[in-house]
Design a protein around this nucleic acid. Sequence first.
DNA 1: CTGAAAGCGCTTACAG
DNA 2: CTGAAAGCGCTTACAG
Lengths: 343, 343
Amino acid sequence: MPSRPSRERAAKVTLNDVAMVAGVDRSVVSRVINGDPNLSVRQETRQRVLDAIDRLGYRPNAAARSLRTARAYMFGLVIPDFANPVYAEIIKGAERAAGNLGYGLMTASSGGVQLGLAHHLALLGQGRVDGLLFAGEETGHELEQLRTSAVPWLLVNRRIEGSRRYVVLDDERGSGLAVEHMVALGHRRIAHLAGPEGADTARRRRAGYTAAMTEAGLNPDPRHVVHADYTSDGGAAAMTALLRIEPRPTAVVVANVASAVGALHTLHEAGLSVPGDLSVIAIHDMPLAGHLVPALTTVRMPLGRLGERALELLATSNLTDDITEVVTEPVDVVVRASTAPPR
Amino acid sequence: MPSRPSRERAAKVTLNDVAMVAGVDRSVVSRVINGDPNLSVRQETRQRVLDAIDRLGYRPNAAARSLRTARAYMFGLVIPDFANPVYAEIIKGAERAAGNLGYGLMTASSGGVQLGLAHHLALLGQGRVDGLLFAGEETGHELEQLRTSAVPWLLVNRRIEGSRRYVVLDDERGSGLAVEHMVALGHRRIAHLAGPEGADTARRRRAGYTAAMTEAGLNPDPRHVVHADYTSDGGAAAMTALLRIEPRPTAVVVANVASAVGALHTLHEAGLSVPGDLSVIAIHDMPLAGHLVPALTTVRMPLGRLGERALELLATSNLTDDITEVVTEPVDVVVRASTAPPR
DNA sequence: CTGAAAGCGCTTACAG
DNA sequence: CTGAAAGCGCTTACAG
């Protein structure tokens, strides 16, 4: 049992109170509030009800409504880390879509409190939300728990082995475009600063990189692919490793904008000029990218649309349906100052 | 009425089902789950209950529990924008504190959906959460609505005229330290790239700047204080304005790290060297700051502690109490490469 | 020591 | 057309 914070609440106003004041049955008040089309009530009576609600400051009790209707009018989204700006866009998209459906969206992080999915199912599952979006680092084992839960769920921006319920971006195309951009500039030694080995997005971005290199008739040097987690520290370390390789690449496709911040910093420390000595492009565009030194060329991915679409699919699908969707909205290169022809 | 997503749910397991399978009354199951100390039951019976819960995959219905106990075991936090990394730290702190109390925390943004506080009160108020933290841009008018609500609330990181329920950081001290750092390096023409005029944090940081300048025997040139919103675009524009002033300042105290990113970019574009031509320090430390070019000297503020403390106060105070707390945890300067003596 | 019963605040099929 | 009643899934004071 959680400890019990002491508190006095302002007097609670219920439907009954409103009904008393308005001089009608509480079922009438309920119908007025919910706009029941089968209710016919004199305009004057309706106004009395509305006035009473206003005067008493009545607000429906969400728990009671949820219990009665078996519907919470709320969805949940679990992300690994609020500090990662990639998730901010996904959250915004999902909030927008939830709002359009008349629902709310509550976001929680799985990273801060290391409690895992069971914790979130207990906290968010059953009666609190009508569905759960997971953009985190859930494992296959945790997926099993989801299967026994009665709460509809969907993975966002990642697939997990054995799961048939996910929405992802076209990550292959994203890094493919990045490679094509470098090839068009005349680069041939194009490295890939990939994401963490375990991450599904990293795997797909790497696959897109390899495919595009092959497509361009280039045979990527295996040493030119290095892994890093999606943080600036990770990007800095991986770039340091990459700089030790001879012959040095003339261009790098970085799997994530946070890693790119660290990579740029390492290059600056090493006295290398971007894009003079090395061109850099990163996956995911955001305002920050335009203000880095030098301004970073990126591949813009439809993160907001991903969040939006995930929420829509969660809201309208049956729990037993397979959902294996790739968001097809356009992916494009935002050219800034960090890429140029090799010299 | 919201539109109604179609869905089939997995069969719902209730307390009654568990009781049937375990061969006990449902009140016993409830007491086992909640660890009622007054319950004495044979170990064997307890095990039967636990097994039944496990086998059926029973999960308590949060709505029913909330309705019955008038307690949601959940707090809410409303922030203006998930893309602002300052809030990520506050969220993490609040999640930590909520977890320690056995509560959950749900975060929503007020910026994405432009629906204001009334929307959030309807969605989160009454029965859904036991209290609401607001770190957003609520107005005095909206505060009135809070007063009529039965949900305990608290403002975080900002005060509003007329409000006696808030927790804030020592912003005066933050910018004071920044000024002292510049003074110690030998600067005398120290400008302030302040936050938005309306923002409470901006006002307090500006006051701290002015006080520290006076304390140091410096009379700040009024033209050396320019306002910008807390974004990199805002910082870039404000820095452009600052550069037009003669004599040019040799140091700038920037009210926010996001603005500082834009300011650094403007300086780079203008061909000015940091810290050679101009030293820059910003309020709020985060990993990104260490990886900017040049690495940014910052004032580290206890944002996580702010979130933590806010949640604790929300959980333990009475709604009628005044709460006017300044988090006193240490504020300190993180020296990196963007500050140096004037040349 | 355990079970039966009441009731939290709603919604909605049903009877009047 | 409106009101009375049942019931959603829990918890807990109370009776046996």
